[in-house]
Design a protein around this nucleic acid. Structure first.
Lengths: 215, 215
DNA sequence: ATCATTGGATAGCGTCACTATCCATGATTG
DNA sequence: CAATCATGGATAGTGACGCTATCCAATGAT
């Protein structure tokens, strides 16, 4: 198919597709003449993945490129690719906030909860640093946030991860598994957050209805 | 305290504080002369909340203004304020993606999971629409995502919400409760997502170590 | 009296994710 | 075969966003 058809079937403007091609998010089409190229179903699928990562998952173009490069890199084994890919994923927190005096306490809390869950602590993990930033912000505002308070969150997260890893293993092909890991990691984030919001709304109305006036 | 001291104690540049004042994220100080104003601890606290919402929670300046305006609006009862405040919170998904043909299926899935959880379905809720967008993206990519698959996520979300609402109720003053609800809703998002990432990493290494090679 | 600081207003900056325009080549059609 | 149209590639521009830098008159500090 030509660029125009790829655009039509994906719902993405041709100018945007060209942009993704330039940025290396999408492999070039098979050149069929000096001024035309042919795209296939694989391109369509990749394009949909890119859009989902960027629009739904909210990750940046640069991050998407890193992730997809790692997924595609067939020069290393799958474990490394997986590691590189998820490490390139959006730290949910952009800033390092290294100038934070409360960071030490936050780091202690982060380690405590992971140890209590029996997890290996890897301080270099971007997720670890994001966790520290978030805890630090909570503490700075005076909200209680210690190992005990985070434990239930960690247990729930553990159960989610177990479930998701099992899902990924159901996919046969290695590249498909990698893609699935990335897609599920990123795309289930909004699912989880939305459900949490809905649950909060439900809980709030329920408590009101059952006569626990919010004062 | 003067602007300079507010800046020093919060770690936020004076130019940025002026920007927040202009944007209505921070109430004006008590004018002490035609060219000077006095700020108090409440300003400092509010400034920290604003920074946390924007930097850690990743919400936009405009959204933060809406949320805080609702929290401050003493002309209506607390329940309405709470509703307005959380409704103004960041849809984790920006785009509506109304041009989506698979949206109908996604909407069905979203309703199914909520009904199976015994929740009231409120389609106008931004979180509902965000959920539909996310499900729609997953389905478009061919990943399984039906009511049964989402049920465990919903149950976990329900437990989180219960826990968080209880936390909020521990705060005495109404305004404090509102602030706490907003802060906890927004600031626990990165906590939850980070823990999920860490749990995934832990699960992945664990499965590797226990001899389930990822092919 | 002097001089730095303050708050307020205005305009500018850097990033990001596109998007619009232009162009030469090649495909399509009567 | 000529006229027209579409395509892919390159380049520059756009609009939103979150600040940030500059200027200014009035004031406080010394």
């Amino acid at each position: 198919m030509r660029l125009a058809e790829l655009s039509r079937r994906s719902g993405v403007a041709t100018a945007t597709i060209k942009f993704y091609l330039r940025e290396g998010l999408l492999p070039a089409g098979r050149r069929v003449s000096s001024t035309q190229a042919e795209y296939d179903e694989e391109h369509l699928r990749r394009l949909q993945l890119v859009r989902a990562l960027i629009q739904v998952g909210g990750i940046s173009v640069a991050a998407a490129r890193e992730v997809l490069t790692a997924v595609d890199d067939s020069s290393v084994d799958q474990v490394s690719r997986m590691g590189t890919a998820v490490a390139a994923l959006p730290q949910p927190l952009p800033g390092p906030a290294a100038d934070d005096p409360g960071a030490a306490t936050a780091d202690r809390v982060a380690r405590e909860v992971q140890e209590r869950l029996g997890w290996r602590v890897v301080p270099e993990n971007p997720a670890h640093q994001a966790l520290v930033s978030a805890i630090s912000a909570l503490l700075r505002l005076g909200y209680p946030c210690d190992g005990a308070a985070l434990l239930p969150y960690g247990e729930l997260a553990g159960r989610l991860a177990e479930h998701e890893l099992s899902l990924v293993e159901e996919f046969a092909a290695p590249t498909t598994q990698l893609e699935a890991a990335v897609a599920l990691t990123v795309l289930y984030e909004p699912v989880l957050l939305s459900l949490r919001r809905l649950a909060q709304a439900e809980q709030a109305t329920r408590r009101l209805r059952d006569g626990i006036p919010p004062r």
